[in-house]
Computed example of a mutant assay.
Amino acid sequence: MVELADADSRTSYEDVTGGGFQTDLTESEVREYMDDANMEVDESLKGRGLSERRLAKIERELTRHFITFLVDEERQVESEDIGPVSFDYAGALSAEGLEATTHGQQVIEYDTSDTLGPDGGDFWSVTA
């Protein structure tokens, strides 16, 4: 895969991995998700009246959403039982899509065009 150059992205590796967001993925793996987020923002949101600053925030949070939604080791725990141990994860087998992670919820909040999310045909909804 051809990695997205920093100049071609609205966000950076440092932006994605900063601010308390933690991941065990390599920089190259994170950049693959950055490329996916950039492509989605370009194809779905560009030209809908959103500022570049807002698109950059969406791209950053969408990258984080992809990581927490799609990478098993990174998935967000939705509920947890202590004994016997049980975890329920948001995302992979839910119909929540962007609403399944806090980062996806932030994408919905930033997207004032209502293109993404439940009212705009959430492109990441997954049904079991």
Rank of each mutant, 00 (worst) to 15 (best):
F69N: 03
D35T: 07
S79P: 12
R54E: 02
G83T: 08
E78I: 03
A5W: 06
S125G: 11
V16L: 10
E96M: 07
Q76F: 15
V2M: 02
D114I: 07
D88Y: 02
T101A: 05
D6K: 12
M39P: 00
S125H: 13
A128G: 13
A37D: 00
D15K: 12
Y13S: 14
A95E: 14
D6F: 04
L116C: 09
D36H: 09
R64N: 11
S86E: 14
F21A: 00
D36K: 15
D72K: 06
D8E: 14
R64F: 06
G97T: 07
D119M: 06
D36F: 13
E14C: 02
Y110L: 13
R10D: 05
L93G: 09
M1Q: 05
D114Q: 14
E96I: 00
D42K: 14
E32A: 10
D81V: 09
E96V: 05
T17Y: 08
R64I: 01
E74Y: 05
T101Y: 10
T11V: 09
E43T: 08
L93C: 07
Y89N: 00
T127I: 15
M1A: 04
E27L: 02
L70W: 08
T63I: 01
E74R: 01
V77R: 08
T17Q: 01
R10W: 00
N38E: 09
V107R: 12
D36C: 05
L93N: 11
D42A: 14
H65C: 02
G18N: 14
I108C: 01
G121C: 09
F69I: 05
G91D: 02
I82G: 00
A5C: 04
H103P: 02
I58V: 15
E14I: 03
E40V: 09
V2I: 03
V85M: 14
A5S: 05
V126I: 11
G49R: 04
D35Y: 15
R10V: 00
L98P: 13
A95C: 05
V85W: 11
T101G: 12
R75M: 02
G91Q: 13
E14P: 06
S125N: 14
T63V: 03
K57T: 09
E78V: 12
D8K: 10
L116G: 14
D8V: 00
E32S: 04
K57L: 11
D81S: 10
T127P: 15
G121D: 13
A7V: 12
R75N: 06
T63E: 13
E59F: 11
S44L: 10
T68R: 12
D119H: 08
E99C: 07
E43L: 13
G49H: 05
D88P: 00
G19Y: 01
A56N: 15
V16P: 10
A90Q: 15
A100D: 05
E73Q: 03
A128Q: 15
E14Y: 04
D111Y: 04
Y110S: 06
S125D: 15
F66A: 09
K57S: 10
V85H: 07
E78S: 13
E29N: 02
S94A: 14
A128H: 15
R60Q: 11
E109C: 02
T63P: 08
